[in-house]
Amino acid sequence: MVQFTDWDILKNLLLAARWTILLSLLAFAGGGLFGLILTLLRSMRNTFITRVIQCYVEVFQGVPLLMQLFLTFFGLSLLGIEVDAWTAAILSLTLFSSAFFHDIWRGCIEALPKGQWEACRTLGFTYMQTMRYIIVPQAMRMSIAPTVGFSVQIVKGTALASVIGFVELTKAGTMINNAVFEPFKVFALVALLYFVICFPLSVLARYLESKNHVTR
């Protein structure tokens, strides 16, 4: 039987943490992009589009991420589309985070006084000009802190991808524990690594929030 030293455990966990980080980054980018598209569509104030997006958000916020992962992973193969764990994990995390990003950013846009829109209308700006020069810059400033804050949720959400066989930090921890039978040590290390990834993000979010308050 192979003997694992502590260093071996840590080394393997660190290697697996790469995938946690990569998956988080891809989910952040994908969710951000899709959330942005949803937000822009929603700001056009078309009743039908708004309804559809509202349903989308309700579904993805109201169903546990774990179920979303299962449904993507098993559901798509039921439809004859073979998806590997990577695709399923990225797809579900993207959809999940897009719903939250959209909600955060919509909130920031709606928090702007109605008078900003009215001033733009009376000056003759087009919708796109209003968004680009007036609404987005102000909403963005407001949204930075909650957006970074939510990225912590994404990092932690990637742990669920372990159940569909995606070897990231949590899955690697389970596998190593199966070999060494030292659950406390292994999972304490796993937890520590998550913390090392997430803590700087939380600090950054808090810093951005305080900075934002000063400039406003």
Partner: peptide, 11 residues
């Protein structure tokens, strides 16, 4: 048009 609350662009 000029508004009661100015509605200047604060940024």
């Amino acid at each position: 048009m000029v508004f009661q609350n100015f509605n200047l662009f604060p940024h």
